[in-house]
């Protein structure tokens, strides 16, 4: 009951944030955005047609009224239809988000796990050769552009110029239970996952190492050592659990960006029909209803996850109680 009340109150606090995001995206994308009357009617429309279309789109109404309409569309999750495919935006999202999650999740999870282990390892040997090697590797990883990584891995693993072990592009994986085949899944998900891991491990390792290094300087770590605790137990019991707050925050708050928007680059480059590809097309073609929906949905998810982290903090740290 307490948790429920706490959650509700936290969600209430997030209302201004949602309002802010919608206001921001409305101002940028609708109010100052391109004139959709021209876009919709094409170049050969008459002045009258355009005027009529503008009227229909509500361009002549005052800012507040138009923002109100925008808010209504947000609250009802009705972002209209895509300009280029004429499908309903929410239908497109519903169809593509599962694909995106399936593409992004393995790389996301493995990337974080690998980084945590590297981070622990480096932090424990802080200042020694091993630490320096891992950190140097992290800086190299951070310095390579995502796009270059994608190009290189596709070339190395998916083409005649390299090993040619995986399909170059596409996503021929059954998306319901009967059609799903784990081998197909591995075939298509491996290279995107490797790219995601390669790109994220550098940044994540640095972040996690910093967290662990700080934790390792704490008195309770010295106590554990003074009572004969070995390195494995020290790291995985004492250090990891104490560092869970920053780790969880980082992981959970990056989830909304993984789910929506996914990995725009990976999906568009590998031709995977996920939400990232949809957003990519929308950005390239200026398909506003989709970009609008993507911004607002991500923000709402973000706020939701923000609340979730607040609740999780108490589970992880007994010192934090419901307030």
């Amino acid at each position: 009951m307490d948790t429920l009340r706490y959650t509700l109150r936290k969600l209430l606090y997030s209302v201004p944030l949602i309002l802010g995001v919608t206001l921001l995206s409305f101002t940028l994308m609708v109010y100052f955005g391109p004139d959709m009357a021209y876009e919709k009617l094409g170049k050969n429309a008459t002045e009258e047609d355009i005027e009529r279309e503008r009227e229909k789109l509500g361009y002549n109404k005052p800012f507040v009224v138009r923002y109100g309409n925008f808010l209504t569309s947000v609250l009802t999750f009705d972002f209209g239809e895509s300009f280029s495919t004429n499908q309903r935006v929410m239908d497109m999202f519903a169809e593509t988000i599962p694909v995106s999650i399936m593409v992004a999740l393995p790389g996301f999870i493995l990337g974080n796990l690998i980084s945590i282990i590297f981070g622990l390892w480096a932090a424990y040997h802080r200042g020694q050769r091993l630490d320096k090697t891992i950190m140097a590797g992290a800086v190299v990883g951070m310095s390579i552009s995502f796009l270059i990584v994608v190009i290189v891995f596709q070339l190395l693993l998916c083409s005649d110029y390299g090993l040619n072990m995986f399909p170059t592009t596409g996503w021929e994986v059954g998306m319901n239970l009967e059609e799903f085949n784990i081998l197909d899944y591995f075939e298509y998900v491996t290279v995107p996952a490797i790219c995601t891991i390669f790109v994220s491990v550098g940044y994540n390792t640095r972040f996690y190492r910093a967290v662990f290094v700080e934790e390792l300087t704490r008195d309770h770590v010295r106590t554990a050592k003074a009572f004969g605790c070995g390195p494995v137990r020290l790291l995985f019991k004492h250090v990891l659990k104490n560092s869970l707050i920053p780790i969880l925050t980082r992981i959970i708050l990056s989830l909304p960006f993984v789910i929506i928007g996914g990995s725009i680059i990976i999906e568009s480059y590998f031709g995977i029909p996920g939400v990232g590809s949809v957003v990519y097309d929308a950005i390239v073609n200026g398909d506003q209803p989709i970009t609008k929906a993507a911004v607002v949905c991500t923000a709402i998810l973000y706020v939701f996850f923000l609340t979730l982290t607040d609740i999780l903090y108490q589970v992880v740290d007994p010192r934090i109680s419901l307030k």
Partner: peptide, 23 residues
């Protein structure tokens, strides 16, 4: 490690921070 806490033990200054807060 086998000796720490077994043959030779130690008590620290800050009881606030010397114990692990999450266990």
């Amino acid at each position: 490690r086998l000796m720490r806490g077994h043959d030779i033990s130690m008590i620290f200054q800050e009881p606030m921070t010397a114990l692990n807060p999450v266990f």
